[in-house]
């Protein structure tokens, strides 16, 4: 029978699935070497300074971990959505939504008992990010609007929502800059180690890695989400409520990105400002792909990215891009 069917790549043995991203990382380093060599730099020196910069001292190592927490969360957010073929490119906007919600609680929630402030920030950030992702998921399932485009456009909408708030109702009194009032002390994430910025966010990120791993591997919902991603027709045929599965997936995905925003507000900046994220949401896409959409892979690749980012500011511009492309192959 001759028909139109797509010949897919044969499944890889498990060792290859691990080896591929590793090979991709090496390829990046080699490709990244080109400009250094061209500029007449010392390759060995460049890379050793990169490693030293990222991991060499206590301070640098901790900074790398600090940077890794939002990246893990946005990477997880994207990977969880992509696994169900919900093309959530909107982690950046969902991160902002989470940050705004956390700031609102942190600044205006003075009536709350102090032990409740951080949980309230976290929950509201998760819900805000989640709802911002549910909106395009709803448009996708009910109205068949392309999710790539809507999640992307909603990023820009959210940027302007934030601009509106920071130049308007949420602007700090007496400030001409677009920044909010600082959040109260009770909303600050606790610091894990003295003399560092390492904060609760890393713990949250690791807990989320484990939670998503568990959802994927052991729950009915994780199984359904996977089936919807692979073949939505077959899942629907088999009695899976595909619309609901996509909506729930979106809620969790957006929520994770929202948590990244909460962390940036409650542990790094202590108030809301326009450049709260240097593109964590977009980097999350790369991280998710390099991590093969697996939560543990995402955690490792987020760590790798944060190494490069902390290790070398100039290299960070180039970083990950070839990684990304090879990672997807």
């Amino acid at each position: 029978m001759v028909g139109l069917s797509i010949v897919r790549r044969q499944t890889l043995p498990p060792w290859a699935e691990i080896l591929l991203p590793v090979a991709a990382i090496f390829a990046t380093l080699i490709i990244g070497a080109l400009p250094i060599v061209l500029a007449g730099g010392n390759l060995f020196k460049a890379y050793s300074s990169l490693v030293y910069g990222a991991l060499g001292t206590r301070f640098n190592l901790l900074e790398t971990l600090v940077k890794a927490s939002p990246l893990i969360l946005t990477g997880l957010a994207v990977s969880f959505a992509f696994r169900a073929r919900f093309w959530n490119i909107g982690a950046e906007g969902q991160l902002f939504a989470g940050a705004i919600a956390a700031t609102a609680v942190g600044v205006y929630g003075t009536a709350l008992p102090s032990w409740l402030v951080i949980p309230a920030c976290i929950v509201s950030g998760f819900i805000a990010g989640g709802l911002w992702a549910v909106l395009p998921a709803f448009l996708k399932t009910k109205l068949k609007v392309d999710d790539v485009v809507t999640t992307l456009l909603l990023n820009y909408v959210m940027i302007h929502v934030m601009g509106f708030l920071l130049y308007g109702p949420m602007q700090a009194a007496g400030s001409s800059w677009p920044r909010s009032e600082p959040i109260m002390d009770a909303a600050h994430y606790p610091i894990l180690l003295p003399r560092s910025r390492l904060h609760l966010g890393l713990v949250i990120a690791i807990v989320m890695v484990l939670a998503i791993w568990f959802i994927n591997a052991r729950t009915v919902f994780g199984y359904r989400s996977k089936c919807v991603g692979v073949n939505i027709n077959a899942a629907h045929f088999s009695g899976v409520n595909t619309d609901m599965t996509i909506l729930k997936t979106a809620l969790i995905s957006g929520g994770l990105a929202g948590l990244a925003g909460v962390g940036e507000v409650c542990a790094i900046h202590y108030h809301l400002l326009m450049d709260i994220s240097p593109g964590y949401g977009y980097t999350g896409i790369v991280i998710a792909m390099l991590g093969n959409l697996h939560p543990v892979g995402v955690a490792l690749s987020a760590f790798f990215f944060s190494c490069i980012s902390i290790g070398s500011q100039t290299m960070s511009r180039m970083a990950g891009i070839p990684v990304y492309i090879e990672g997807v192959i």
């Binding site: 448009l139 109205l143 609007v145 456009l153 909408v157 929502v161 509106f164 308007g168």
Partner: peptide
């Protein structure tokens, strides 16, 4: 506020998509 204006084109685009997507 300027940001409300800036938002409009993006929002309108989404609205327009909602309008046509079912019969695309």
């Amino acid at each position: 506020p300027i940001h409300v204006f800036l938002m409009i084109p993006y929002l309108m685009t989404i609205v327009a998509l909602v309008g046509v997507s079912r019969k695309a």
